[in-house]
Write a protein that binds this DNA or RNA. Structure first.
Length: 484
RNA sequence: GGUCUCGUGGCCGAGCGGCUAGGCACCGGUCUGCAAAACCGUCUACUCCGGUUCGAAUCCGGACGAGACCUCCA
């Protein structure tokens, strides 16, 4: 198996990846919170980790991919403010929290299919792991890294810092943090500003309430990931992923909880996907500069003039590296769409190639280039560039300017389709099934062909221009006439 | 304010000290009744100023600019 190098946020460097158990990988990725429909920025992260998952599978690893679903409102933030996002939406929509969660879960599952995300091995939900969360909290308590105040449990960062460093992932120092925190005054029940809730006492108006040894309440924001990653992957596993914006405090606190409970960092490799930008700024709910994955497919977003297929959107996103920010503009995705079509065209052209007695280039070079790209921190843009190189070869092969033996040809086809469908997860755009239109077009094309044979250019041009106005483009190829 | 990241040709976007991706657009060509489409080819960029080096987009220092995190956020 080729050496795989992955950029590890913990060290800030690319490191050789060696799984804990040979041939097997445990990967945990922070999934959505079900209080609204995920926007395109959220999707980018899921698409990126789907690509990474596909890469790992392609490399032959047996991957256990866990992506959680947060269906319990996080009841606190580090400023001590009460923020129950799910409960808030539930009240606004006059529904129960469970209905909100169910509603957005259905939407999320639909989106996953639309965008061709492979289903994770398991998608555990926070609410069905309350017991595991309570047990994790008890562990942290008994290890002396948490305290109970008035029915709530807080992580004791100062006690923790006696035994472990805090802030290693995000590169923060607690004394600096303190000076920089803007909302020092609202510390509330916490002993120390950096402490965070593991369990929060319930309020009468809370919609989701669970029993616990400390009274009725709700789990804190970070503990679900600790509980569920431990349950499904163990105290220590290979890869933990998520969006860049979760690095602090969420992932930092996850590390603290895991160390506090089990004495070890949960993951050896931490991967962070970068943000999707709109006009150079992070796409976010609060800024309102977002559009939905559904809108771009339907063409209903005012930011774009037309719909794009999910594969085009995926392709567009994978043309940038997961650790880079990506600006989503009309111009950029239009450019990608053209490239996407060229790639797909190359793929179908490949079927027409006739095998030769000898090969004029090495397919093994191409295979090596693709796996080099994948093994260099999942470099999708380089992988795509390699595929365009294949497209170039395909054209030359069709023109008879290059040759491949049947064996090499089969190899080329297999690597190409494997990369496009299996690894990039993109599919040719299906033409709308419209039997009647197809029948009509067949007649029109035949009529035009007849006019052309009679050199009746007025007629043939009139047909062409008329169709153009109707949004149908005529393409005269050597083999005949096609339309789109 | 603190911490961090980034600044590449008309646009998007790779690059991790020498071999100077890729896509789109432009331009030129092939093809075509003409056009479109398709294909082929061309275009050599790294914010600025210093430094290290035989050699820097790539390393170091500084300036300017942009962004992220420090509050829920993928």
């Amino acid at each position: 198996m080729q050496k795989l190098h992955i950029y590890n946020s913990l060290s800030g460097k690319k490191e050789e990846f060696i799984p804990l158990v040979p041939g097997k990988i445990g990967m945990y990725v922070c999934g959505p919170t079900l209080y609204s429909e995920p926007h395109m920025g959220n999707m980018r992260t899921f698409i990126n980790f789907d690509f990474i998952y596909r890469c790992l599978l392609h490399l032959g690893y047996d991957v256990k991919y866990v992506r959680n679903i947060t269906d319990a409102g996080h009841i606190t933030n580090s400023a001590g403010q009460e923020v129950d996002s799910i409960g808030k939406v539930a009240k606004a929509e006059q529904l129960q929290s469970l209905e909100i969660v169910y509603k957005y879960n259905v939407k999320f599952q639909t989106l996953q299919q639309l965008y061709n995300l492979l289903p994770p091995s398991i998608e555990p939900t926070a609410t069905s792991h309350i017991q595991e969360q309570i047990e994790a909290i008890e562990k942290i308590l008994s290890n002396g890294y948490a305290y109970v105040t008035n029915g709530s449990v807080y992580f004791d960062v100062r006690a923790y810092m006696n035994d472990y460093p805090y802030g290693t992932l995000s590169g923060r120092k607690v004394d600096e943090l303190e000076a920089e925190t803007r909302t020092l005054q609202s510390q509330g029940e916490k002993r120390f500003f950096a402490d965070f809730a593991l369990w929060k006492k319930a309020h009468a108006e809370d919609m989701q309430i669970w029993r616990s040894p400390w009274g009725d309440g709700n789990p804190g924001w970070h503990i679900e990931c600790t509980a569920m990653s431990t349950k499904y992957l163990g105290k220590s596993f290979d890869i933990h992923g998520g969006g860049m914006d979760l690095k602090f405090p969420h992932h930092e606190d996850e590390i603290a909880q895991n160390c506090g409970a089990f004495g070890c960092n949960p993951a050896r490799f931490w991967l962070h996907a970068n943000m999707l930008n709109v006009n150079g700024q992070k796409m976010s709910k609060s800024l309102g500069n977002f559009f939905l994955p559904k809108e771009i497919i339907e063409g209903s977003s005012p930011l774009f003039d037309k719909p794009y297929s999910p594969s085009v959107v995926r392709f567009f996103m994978l043309q940038s590296h997961y650790r880079s920010t990506l600006d989503f503009t009309k111009e950029a995705i239009n450019a990608s769409e053209k490239g996407f079509e060229r790639l797909m065209e190359g793929m179908s052209l490949m079927e027409k190639i006739e095998p030769s007695q000898s090969s004029s280039f090495l397919v093994s070079d191409i295979i090596k280039a693709t796996s080099d790209a994948i093994c260099d921190d999942f470099n999708a843009p380089i992988l795509i560039a390699t595929l365009f190189d294949v497209v170039k070869h395909v054209h030359l092969l069709c023109d008879g300017k290059e040759q491949l033996t049947q064996e090499d040809l089969n190899l080329l086809k297999s690597i190409f389709t494997n990369m496009v469908h299996g690894v990039l997860g993109i599919e040719p755009v299906k033409k709308e099934e419209n039997k009647r239109l197809e029948g009509v077009m067949e007649v029109i094309v035949a009529l035009r062909q007849q006019a052309r044979e009679q050199k009746n250019w007025n007629m043939s041009d009139m047909i062409r221009e008329g169709l153009e106005k109707a949004g149908i483009q005529i393409k005269d190829n050597k083999e005949g006439t096609s339309w789109t």
